[in-house]
């Protein structure tokens, strides 16, 4: 950031919107964990979101609301999240990075930057979360499917501020299961699978499957979900659904694993997590 000239710390969201829009070349700063790998010549100002009051996790009649600067540790320790859909998001947050990093990585940064440690997007897809974005024109709400359809940077302008993640009401009592498959303990996901499930007896009423880290953007598997709804969830169906997911997620190579291997993992992890969600 050799051309950085200004640093702003607004005290409210309104002020932040004003500051980020005031001049071109300004960028947002949240947890700061992406800063060391950002070497932008075009950034001339930073607007720090730390003091604008977005670090909340609150219960609302419409939704659970997670402020964009809430850190992973807060998500992990939130009893609201621990009791929402089998505690999926709290479990996911607990596996992002390490203790000191979880004190720094923010929810907004994790979903916006989509880096190797971005474990939140796939489960947010599975939870049908909504992402709130504010700019000078006002607030826009994006369903997770749209937000993560491509890299969020293609959706957002420099002046857009991701302010909040909303988790919908009505699925609190769903069960869930999550696996982050790593090459080495405590490292980045080769592939992750999140399953959110609602059962009546042995029959699936509702299900969502999110796959992370296997492809450039996180993926839902609507084909697999359709196969499951109103069907009896047993081992052979779980296996079949795993195969469907495998066929429908376009995996790519990176240093953590080949696309081939990730496809294989998707198949196995979808099966495993479906069965686990069923019994949890």
């Amino acid at each position: 950031m050799q051309n950085l000239k200004e640093f702003e710390r607004p005290q409210s969201l309104d002020e932040a919107v004003e500051k980020i829009s005031a001049k071109p070349g300004r960028r947002l700063l949240a947890g700061g964990t992406g800063l060391s790998i950002t070497d932008s010549k075009t950034t001339i100002g930073l607007v720090d979101l730390k003091s604008v009051g977005l670090d909340y996790i609150e219960d609302d009649s419409d939704a659970i609301k997670i402020g964009a600067t809430a850190v992973m540790r807060a998500l992990e320790e939130s009893s609201l999240l621990q009791n929402y859909a089998g505690g999926l998001l709290a479990d996911v947050a607990a596996e992002v990075g390490t203790t000191p990093l979880r004190n720094m990585i923010t929810a907004g940064g994790n979903i916006t930057q989509l880096r190797v440690w971005s474990d939140l997007p796939a489960p947010l897809l599975a939870l049908d979360a909504e992402i709130l974005v504010t700019d000078q024109e006002g607030e826009t709400t994006y369903p997770a499917q749209k937000f993560f359809h491509r890299h969020p940077s293609q959706l957002l302008d420099d002046t857009d501020i991701v302010t909040e993640i909303q988790l919908p009401r009505g699925i609190e009592n769903y069960s869930s299961s999550y696996t982050k498959f790593v090459a080495v303990d405590d490292s980045y996901a080769v592939t992750s699978v999140s399953v959110v499930l609602d059962m009546e007896g042995d029959t699936v009423k509702d299900v969502r499957i999110g796959v992370g880290s296997a492809s450039p953007s996180p993926a839902r598997c609507p084909e697999a979900e359709e196969e499951l709804v109103d069907a009896e969830l047993n081992e052979s169906l779980a296996e079949k659904v795993g195969e469907i997911c495998r066929a429908n997620v376009n995996t790519t190579d990176n240093v953590w694993g080949s696309g081939d291997y990730k496809s294989k993992l998707i198949e196995k992890l979808v099966k495993k997590n479906l069965l686990q969600a069923k019994t949890s």
């Binding site: 090459a183 990176n254 080949s258 081939d260 291997y261």
Partner: peptide, 21 residues
């Protein structure tokens, strides 16, 4: 030996290229 290498060794005969990375 990463997990993937074990998996790959178990499926060597499936005419699969070695992991690119």
């Amino acid at each position: 030996i990463r997990s993937e290498d074990v998996w790959w060794a178990l499926h060597k005969d499936e005419d699969r290229d070695r992991p690119r990375y």
